[in-house]
Design a binder for these strands. Sequence first.
DNA 1: CTATTTGTTTATCC
DNA 2: AGGATAAACAAATA
Length: 276
Amino acid sequence: MPELAEVEHSRKQWDPGKNDVILDVDVARPEIRVFRGTDVPTLRDRLSGRRLLASEARGKQMLFQFSDGCWLGLHLGMSGELRREEQADYTPRKHDHLVLRQQKRALVFEDKRHFGRVRLHEGAEPPDWWQKLAPSILSKEFTLARLTAFVQRRRRTTIKAVLLMQEHFPGVGNWMADEILWRARIHPSTPAGNLDLAQTCGLWQQVRWVSRTAVRIISDDWTYPKTWLFAHRWEAGGQCPRCKTDLERAAIGGRTTCWCPECQRKQDAPTERATI
DNA sequence: CTATTTGTTTATCC
DNA sequence: AGGATAAACAAATA
C-alpha cells in the first residue's frame, strides 16, 4: 500500500538499526526484477561490514546511508514494505528479497509483486537520481504558482492522471489522488486545463492537506478515519462519507478511480478561450 | 479460468 | 519534439 505516508512509515521501521553494523546480507533470488540494474554480489559485498547511518524518504523513494560512502536506494512498487525482525536468526519468508542482518535484528525488504526496486550507490554524495527528485509537496518550493504552471502544461490530460505524475506530485498514488480530488470537489476526468482559479487553489490546498495529514495519522494510527474517502473506496456499495451518495468507479488515467458523483460534478469546459 | 491490484518504464501513436 | 496512452512487468487474491 505504499504511497507517501506508507513509504515514510516503512522507512522508520529500520530506524532501530541505526548505528549498528550489517553483519550479513541475504538475497535468496538475485535474478528477480527488484534488482534490475544492480549487481547483487557487489551489493552484498559493499553493505556487509557497514553501519547504517541515516535514512530519508522523498515521495515514494527512500535512501539509506551507510558508512564509508555507501547508499541503498529502495522503492516499494505496488506491494513492497520494510519490516524489522527482532530475532537475529530470522528465517526469511518467500518474498523477503533483501535481509540486512545485524547483531540484534534483521532489516527486511519484502515485495510480493516484484515491482519495487533496490539500488546501490557508492560515493561521498547521494546518487544523482536522488538529487534530481522533485521538491516535496510539503516544502516551501511547492507553490501555487508552480502547480498552476504544471497543470497548464498538462492541460489536455485528465486531472487524475496529472496528480499521479511523480515529477510534480512526489508520493501521490492512486488512493491519494482520489482523496484529494474528492476533497477539492473536482471530477477526476476533468482535463487539467479546464480548472478555474478557485479549483486550482483548492487542489493545491488539498494536495498539501492530504499529504500532511496522512503522514501524521499513519505514524500512530495506521488506519484512516471513516470521514475519508479512503475508508470507503473499496467497499462494495460504498457511499460518500460526506453526502451518502453511492460512489462511482471507472478507469481514468489508466487506473481504477473512485469518486462521488454528487460532490464531484462533471463540469463543462470553460466557455471560450481567446478568439483566433 | 478470469479479472483485479495502492507503480513505473517503455513503446507507440499523435 | 513533446505529450498522451496502452502495454508490460509479477504474483496473489477473489
